[in-house]
Simulated assay, not measured.
Amino acid sequence: MRLQKYIALAGVSSRRKAEELIRTGKVKVNGKIVTEMGIKVDPEADKVSVMNKEIHILADKKYILLNKPVGYVTTLSDEFDRPKVIDLLKEVKERVYPVGRLDYNTSGLLLLTNDGDLTHKITHPSSHIYKTYVCKIKGRITKKEMETFRSGVDIGGYVTAPAKIELLKENNDNSLVKVTIYEGKNRQIRRMMEALDHPVITLKRISIGKIDMDNLQIGKWRHLTNKEVEYLRSL
């Protein structure tokens, strides 16, 4: 088994993050630091440690859906000591980590798991898994601006992939729109709206593929159903 896959299956991080841990010399195999990609390990015979802590493949995988509040970070540590989403999961004994990210000022659906393979599947750019958001923006968005949003927006040296947008409500001061994208560029929707001169006021993710929150209250979480897990694996 490749070393980065072993690390992901141990619930330490996603496979992509595992590669970074290996490159930076934080991983040891049988007591020796390994920095090369592609190294294979025997789960039964080799001892693997990350930052001097021995790790093992997790038999019991957890899949959690959280309705993230505004004002929480999705990182596992924060230099400014801001509240973390894992603080809301104190009843969960296993170590889980966020699948992708939601900005500090963005609320809504966030998946957390210790299944590195599933994390890799959902977050990899080639997966094209659509995420849907409800977005309140400044000003009244025009049909022409929405067509620009759908065809791709230059957010500073990068033109976004085709996206979906639907006007839900508007008044003289702002618009409420439903937006669907499959890319995951940093602050992508906020940057797209800023490029159209419609700064975001509030942003909430309501679904990932066919997974939604139903009536889950903000700050609360639930386990994914077996059907939901199988659906994500099938994507």
Rank of each mutant, 00 (worst) to 15 (best):
N114H: 07
I155V: 01
K26T: 14
S77Y: 09
N186I: 13
D173T: 12
I206F: 05
L232M: 03
I165W: 04
K40Q: 10
Y72H: 14
R23N: 15
K28D: 13
G100Y: 02
M146N: 09
E166P: 07
S126H: 03
C135R: 01
D103E: 12
I155A: 04
T123D: 01
D103K: 01
M37R: 09
T106Q: 04
T35C: 15
Y182Q: 06
K144V: 15
K138S: 08
F80G: 13
T119P: 02
K227T: 11
L88H: 12
E183G: 09
L76W: 00
G38Y: 02
M192D: 00
Y6T: 06
V29S: 08
G157D: 01
K169G: 08
M51K: 05
D214E: 04
I201V: 03
T142C: 07
T113I: 12
T113N: 08
K220L: 04
I155D: 01
D103G: 08
R2P: 14
T148D: 10
A59D: 13
N114W: 08
M146V: 12
E170M: 11
T225H: 07
V200I: 02
L9C: 11
N215Y: 05
V177R: 02
M192R: 06
K90T: 15
G108I: 00
K62M: 14
L168M: 11
I137G: 10
I155H: 02
I39A: 04
A8I: 02
E94H: 11
G108T: 07
K61S: 05
D214I: 00
L109M: 04
L168K: 09
D115V: 02
T74M: 08
S234T: 11
Y133R: 03
R187D: 14
I86H: 13
E145C: 07
G38W: 05
V92T: 13
T142W: 06
I141D: 07
L176F: 07
Q4K: 11
E20G: 15
M146C: 06
S49K: 10
K178I: 10
S107A: 06
P125C: 05
K227G: 06
D87M: 13
K204V: 06
E19N: 10
A45F: 07
R190M: 00
V27S: 02
G152H: 04
E183A: 07
I137A: 12
L168A: 14
K53V: 12
I189S: 00
V153R: 09
I201G: 05
E170R: 07
T119W: 01
D60K: 09
V85G: 03
D87T: 15
K62S: 13
K131L: 02
I39H: 02
L168Y: 06
P98V: 10
G31Y: 09
L235N: 05
L76T: 11
V27D: 06
D197R: 12
K227D: 05
S14Q: 06
E166G: 11
H223T: 03
P125S: 04
N186M: 09
V179W: 03
E145M: 04
E20F: 10
T202E: 02
V41F: 04
Y104L: 13
A161G: 12
I55T: 10
E170I: 06
V99Q: 05
M146L: 09
L89E: 13
V134K: 01
S107Y: 03
L235A: 04
T160S: 11
P69C: 06
G31L: 10
R140Y: 05
I165V: 08
S14E: 04
I7N: 00
K164R: 15
L235E: 02
M37I: 12
M146D: 08
